[in-house]
């Protein structure tokens, strides 16, 4: 098992880390209550500037999805695959109850089972290894997949 010291989040402030129960970090407007992810100081709904950071729900439902069928251009893509090893991956929006829909890579053993409305859980884990360190990112996966 890799030590925490060897793990770096893909971006600061996206999720709580290190944590045994990591959560995405969003913001909630103190004026109109609208939730945004990632956290931001200004509210996109009421144009206010008074928001507070919140931890997001970890279970939601799949609102829409697609499958990325070709290796994305790099940069900006920086995943571990080569043209030879690339396998299509899923992306979608997960609706977190009473909060917001979050865009996420989806880890799914069987892409054919993806269906709008299915329950999805947050997982925060290794995305890629760079310079001897594990880059940690967030994903969603079908509830009960593991």
């Amino acid at each position: 098992m890799t030590s925490i010291a060897n793990q770096i989040p893909i971006a600061e402030g996206l999720f709580t880390w290190p944590s045994n129960d990591p959560r995405l970090l969003g913001s909630k407007c103190n004026n109109c209550g609208v939730v945004t992810f990632p956290a931001q100081a200004g509210c996109p709904a009421c144009c206010g500037e008074d928001t507070a950071n919140i931890e997001m729900e970890r279970r939601g439902t799949l609102w829409t999805w697609t499958i990325q069928g070709f290796l994305p251009n790099r940069p900006p893509y920086d995943g571990p695959e080569t043209a030879e090893t690339f396998k299509p991956f899923a992306v979608g929006y997960i609706e977190l109850p009473n909060q917001v829909r979050v865009q996420s890579r989806i880890k799914c053993d069987d892409l054919d089972q993806l269906k709008i409305g299915m329950e999805m859980d947050l997982v925060v884990e290794k995305y890629v290894e760079r310079d001897g360190k594990d880059i940690i990112a967030y994903f969603f996966e079908p509830a009960g997949q593991r």
């Binding site: 893909i10 971006a11 990325q68 994305p72 900006p76 893509y77 920086d78 992306v91 890579r105 990112a137």
Partner: peptide, 12 residues
């Protein structure tokens, strides 16, 4: 957007 958004393969 954050750099991570492209890094992870969603800026398409």
């Amino acid at each position: 957007l954050g750099k991570w958004y492209g890094d992870i393969g969603m800026a398409l």
